[in-house]
């Protein structure tokens, strides 16, 4: 039996009738058409599907869309404003924080929460907070630098 779900994604309200077993990540990608959120391992380990739900980083492959009924969701598509990259996105650009880019949306969404909880993070804090996001290209070195760049930039703007 299908159930109605309604949520706000990047500020826009969406509503659909879905099967309860539909995963949130497939809802976002296929029903709403926002394909920036990736499906990687599909076992809640790699973090490629990380989004913000009510301000908290969660793995969208490990949630059913019906669990997100009424929630406010933010995906990678909602970060840039008026054609200007978010400082975290800009940091990944400046510090070459990616190679293939597959893990990048999840990395950036995880970094959003990281910098909200730890606005001036140590390198150790960054690495600990990224434990749920796997990158198979870069060895994380430049990802850490990108987030440090973003932290400094965001602090300077305040």
């Amino acid at each position: 039996m299908k159930l109605p779900v309604k949520m706000t994604i990047n500020g826009q309200t969406t509503s659909h009738e879905v099967e309860p077993r539909l995963l949130l990540v497939h809802y976002i990608r296929e029903n709403v058409g926002l394909t920036g959120t990736h499906v990687g391992c599909d076992t809640s380990q790699c973090g490629a599907c990380t989004i913000l739900m009510n301000g908290q980083a969660v793995k969208a492959c490990n949630l059913f869309a019906v669990q997100a009924d009424g929630a406010s969701i933010q995906t990678i598509e909602g970060l840039a404003k008026n054609g200007e990259l978010h400082p975290i996105q800009q940091g990944f650009w400046e510090k070459h924080g990616l190679q293939c880019g597959f893990c990048t949306p999840g990395m950036i969404m995880a970094a959003c929460q990281l910098l909200e909880r730890y606005p001036t993070p140590t390198e150790e804090q960054i690495r600990h907070q990224l434990e749920g996001n796997l990158c198979r290209c870069t060895g994380y070195h430049n990802i850490v630098k990108a987030i440090q760049w973003a932290a400094e930039t965001m602090a300077a703007k305040k």
Partner: peptide, 9 residues
């Protein structure tokens, strides 16, 4: 436990 996203839920 797990990672930050796991701990959030």
């Amino acid at each position: 436990i797990g990672d930050p996203a796991v701990r959030n839920l």
